[in-house]
Structures are given as C-alpha cells and as structure tokens.
Design a binder for these strands. Sequence first.
DNA 1: GTGCAGGGTGCAACCGGTTGCATCCCAAGT
DNA 2: ACTTGGGATGCAACCGGTTGCACCCTGCAC
Lengths: 345, 345
Amino acid sequence: MPVTMQDLAQWLKISKSTVSRALAGDPRVSSETRARVQQLARELNYHPHSAASGLARRRTNVIGLVIPFAPRSLSDPFFLEFVGGIGDYAITKGFSILLSSPRASQDEPSGNTTFTRIVSSRRVDGLILTEPRITDERVDFLKERDIPFVFLGNPGRNSDICWVDGDNKAGVEMAVDHLVSLGHRNIACIAGPPDQTATFRRLEGYRAALRRHGIPYDESRIAQGDFTEPGGYRAMMDILDRNPGVTAVFASNDMMAIGAINAARQRGLRVPHDLSVVGFDGIALGAYVTPALTTVTQPIYRLGQAAAELLIKLVERQAPAERHVLFPLTLTVRESSARRQGTAG
Amino acid sequence: MPVTMQDLAQWLKISKSTVSRALAGDPRVSSETRARVQQLARELNYHPHSAASGLARRRTNVIGLVIPFAPRSLSDPFFLEFVGGIGDYAITKGFSILLSSPRASQDEPSGNTTFTRIVSSRRVDGLILTEPRITDERVDFLKERDIPFVFLGNPGRNSDICWVDGDNKAGVEMAVDHLVSLGHRNIACIAGPPDQTATFRRLEGYRAALRRHGIPYDESRIAQGDFTEPGGYRAMMDILDRNPGVTAVFASNDMMAIGAINAARQRGLRVPHDLSVVGFDGIALGAYVTPALTTVTQPIYRLGQAAAELLIKLVERQAPAERHVLFPLTLTVRESSARRQGTAG
DNA sequence: GTGCAGGGTGCAACCGGTTGCATCCCAAGT
DNA sequence: ACTTGGGATGCAACCGGTTGCACCCTGCAC
C-alpha cells in the first residue's frame, strides 16, 4: 500500500490538514513543521493520489489532446512534432496529456467517442483541438460545459475562442510569389478538405497572390485533397488530366506535396525540371525525401508549446496576454522547385 | 454544475447506493428500478465523475504510454501508427491513453519525469513501454509498485515480463537473404543504439544470415545509428569512409534507411544502382520516398492493438492467453534494392 | 402463529485528499 | 491581571462515487 497523508500525519502526530498545508507550502504552518513534513514525505516516498486531490480540488492537471487518428495523423509526422511541443511545455507545468480522437461529429453528441467521454467524465481540465471545421459542434459542446479549450488553427467564428496558428494566408502568398519569381504562371493548387477552416485561408492566400501578379484564377487548376499522401497523389493526377499545362503546384500540406511528386513522376514528369512543387508545414521529413521539398515552414513544435501555454493559462484562470497567437511563417527553398523551363534566368 | 448520483437519488427518492448499483447493472436491484434509474440518467445527461469513481474503485481506466519525445519520435511516424493501434483498441474497452516520455533514466529515480510522476500519483492502471533497454530500471520501478506493464519489444531478462514484438531476427534474415539473392556480398549494417535490446536481435539476424551464406562478418561494415534520419546519414557516411566497397546496406529502421540513402546520394552514389538499401519497420512513408524503400514490414498498428489488449487483460486481472506475442514479419520489396552491378541476372 | 429464506433497499463507512472555521497558545499592550 | 491579536494547528465537512452489512418486507413451510 502506498503511503498516504494520513500515514504522514500519524507518524508526526499532527493532523492531516497540517500535512496537507505543509506540503502545499502554506505559510500558515510553521517553517519548522513544514520542513519536518516535507522531509518525511521524501523519506517515505510519499506521492499524492491524483484521483483524491482531483476530486477535492476539482482539477485533474491533465489536458486533453484531440487529434485525428485516421485517416490523417497515422502517417503525418506533423502531429507528432506538435505533440512534442505540447508535451514538453506541459511537463514543466505539471500537466499530463490525454489523447483522444475527434469522432464526435458523425455520431450523436452523446456518442461513445473518446472526445465526449473524457470531457463528460471530467477527466481533463481543458482541451487542445486540431483541425477546426467551419461549423464545429465541439465548440458548443465545450462552452456548455465551461471547459477551456484552444484550437490549433483559427476556427473563424467568434473572436473569443482561443487559438494558435501560423499565418496561412501570408505563408501561401510567399509560396506562390516564389513560384512566380521562378517564371511560373500556370500554378495549380491542391486544397485541403472543404470543411476545414485552414483550407480557406490557404486558398485565399493562393488567390490573393495570383491577383497581385495579374494571373487569372482558374478552377481547372484547383483540386481537393485530404491532407494525406494518397489524397495528394489523386489530386495531382486530377489536375494533370484537366490542365496538362501546369508547370508548378502548391500543395496545402507536405504529405500531399509528396503525393503530388509521386503522381508527377508516375506521369513521366521530372520534379522540379518539368513541375515545381511547393508544400506547406515544414515537417522534418520534407528535407529527406527526393527531391527535398520546398515548403512553407511552420514552427510546429512552437505551435504546440504556445497552445499548451495558452490552455494552461486558461485552466488556471489567469488572463492570457493574447487569446490568439499567430506565428509568421517562412519559406524553405529546397530542391522541388526550380525555374520554369524555357524561361530566361 | 454537472448532475451527480446524489441528484438522481433525490429525484427518484431512493438512495445513492441503489443508484450506483442500478447503473452498474447489479442484479440485486429490481429490473424496474434499474430501468427507471438508467432512463433518468440518460435524460439528465448524467456521467460519472472519473476522479470519484477512480478513488473508490482504485481504477482509473487510463493506460500510460511511454514513448520517446526526443530525439526519435518527433520525426518517426512509427510511433504515431503504433499509438493509433493502441488507441483504437483501448477505446473499445473504455480506456484512455495518457502520454509520457521515458526520461526516468538519466535523472534520479525520484526525478520529476512524466513517467515516474504518472505512476507515483496513480494516474494510470498500467503502462505500455517502448524501446526496452538491456538493463531497464523501469522494470523494477514498476514491479515494486505492482503496476502492470507491457513492452513493445522483447526486453530479454525474465520471461514473466509481457511484451509484443515483431520477429526481429527472422525479419533481418529475410532482408539479408534478399540482398544476397541480388548478388550482394559486401553488405553493411546500420545498427541501433547500443543500449536497446532490439539492436541486438537485429544484429543477430544479420550475423546469422551472413553465416548461412558463408560471408565473413566484418566490423568495418557495421556502424551505429540512433534510429533517426541524421543518425542514419552519419552512420552511412562512416561506413562509406571505412569500407568504400559496400554495395548494399541494411538499416535497422526506416528513418535511418532514408538517412543512408541521402548520405549515399551525397557521395555521388545512385540508389539502388550503386548501393542497395533495405530498411526495417515498414512505415507508410517508406512507400513515398524516392526511391521507394525496400523494407522489412512490421504490423505496427497491430502491434499497438496487441499491446493494448495484453495490458488491459493484465489490468483486469484476467490471465492473458500468452505473455508474449511475436508477429511474423514480411519483406516488402520496392525500389531501393537492386541486383548488384556486374552480376549476371 | 412462528421461523426462515431471499429479494430489494438503505445506512454509513470509506477511498485520500482539501479547506472553512474554530480553537489553542503565548507574547504584547494597557 | 485581563484583554487583544496573531501565529500554529485541529476538527469536521466535503468532493462523488463504491460497497459491506443491516434491515425490511413478502411469501412460504412448518
């Protein structure tokens, strides 16, 4: 049997309350008593029982992380790096991370999903949600229950929702500018799933950049993907069918960019000689594929840290400095993009 | 305020105990009462408070997962897929997953690591550990506290420790056999970190296969990596320096194989024309890199499921059918391996 | 009419902490 | 000598469930 507070109290012939306060560093207990308690706790290897203190304090010191188990994350290193950022920060604040998948949407709200379950049973103090959707019923679900949450990605809607995000629009503009500067005009775009808000911001950046360069927007250059490699592959095939003249493509994330490269190769196109490809995310992997991926780099790890920091502030009822954290993005030029064939240097 | 059992009891003018039993499906309460309680619970959207029931039942219904946040997993999709398998299975059994990193080793045992913390504070009913080490102090730590655990990877040592694993030795033998069948004799090996048990099993397979084919074992063909891409890159460089004649290399995991390919390319070698590369793990990504990776495929997702299943059996004090689950592996031949130059077909 | 079995329910303790409030003690103030 | 005050500690309730045991009631056997 692990040692309890009661044990410490009996040993020292003082009350449970004093032990509790001593361990919490309450200034009301004499420093002498406090020292004795802490000393004994260490000697007997005492550790508070999380369920007991959670029950009494109405705090679990656990934050929930809702990431898509399928189809996306199983193969997308993006999330793992994001988790790393959250984890490392949370550790320093004494929080643990509970995983869950977001499948509350299809099912009825009371459906037996991990997401609703960990919230209803009050397993977590707050949540980090990913992939906000245009109409995201999770928001109401959580607001109703007064559970703090932070989105990875600007969910749009009311501005009182907290989020962290990269500057999608500006990021994509940099990508398109880069392609234009290499002489490309017929630039395709592989978009994300239509229900996600990130999809629209990135599309917006794409259109804005085209407009700036006086390139007409053309539906036949757009295809929809799902943020997975196979999705990017299919989308690229689709684009090549409809618009064989494209010389460059922007993919809304790196996994789809990798898929696009494979599709192009399948069609006998050389990347970047015949087709330039630019991705988005900056996953570590992008540097290791062939050709190494030119991409818009997000500070993924720091996004994780920022999300955790923001959420923990909310949980602890401190007013966060900012409800929204927008990171600037950078363009990482590698091998998958090159000057358009037949263009002067 | 969320509705509690007390609320239900008052509403129905019965005692808390009866409500508790009714919800648990205890046959001692009349089926009529049971129905009324369950009905009302649904209507009022009642959900048990996990901390309260955890405290009373000495069960959290949470399993801990200990994966390396750094340096490895941040870029290795292997773990994400593994997590998926665990998660999907755990959901069906009503368990959640708490993440932690295994940094208990460097620090003193009482160090403030997530691993020791979630165990000491009794946050989890059991643990899934990865990357067993030759002498793994986590084993004693957990046995002392009587916490069930399952390893991903055979930890060696006493056979009463539960684990799931792929058949490393046989898997590597298949890889080497494949290379030999393509005419290679000068086959290098990039091993894993020296403190991990998997490293030895894979090396053993390598040596066994060489022996079978009458190829002498040569230290100059071995280099050590750390299961990351940069580690694989460095190891490959090292091997090429010491033994320029190698025509094939087996890397102990896919990330290192990708690193090896990049190193070879850096040295002006074409893969697979000048150097064949075979990896290990079968991460989804291996199919998407260029050249697509020949690899020993592990059923990663199923390893996760099996680990979760085994652990949950232990937690629920059911005797598992087997304490060890060994999965057969398969060789997936793709583009990174080819017949040795100057060898007859 | 008494005894007994057994189904259905409730009481109260318990899990292991936290916390509002009362209490005690002793030095200082008048 | 008698309050006053503040520092140190303890009591007991509480968080929201679970569970051993006692109890009540009805029906049936004797």
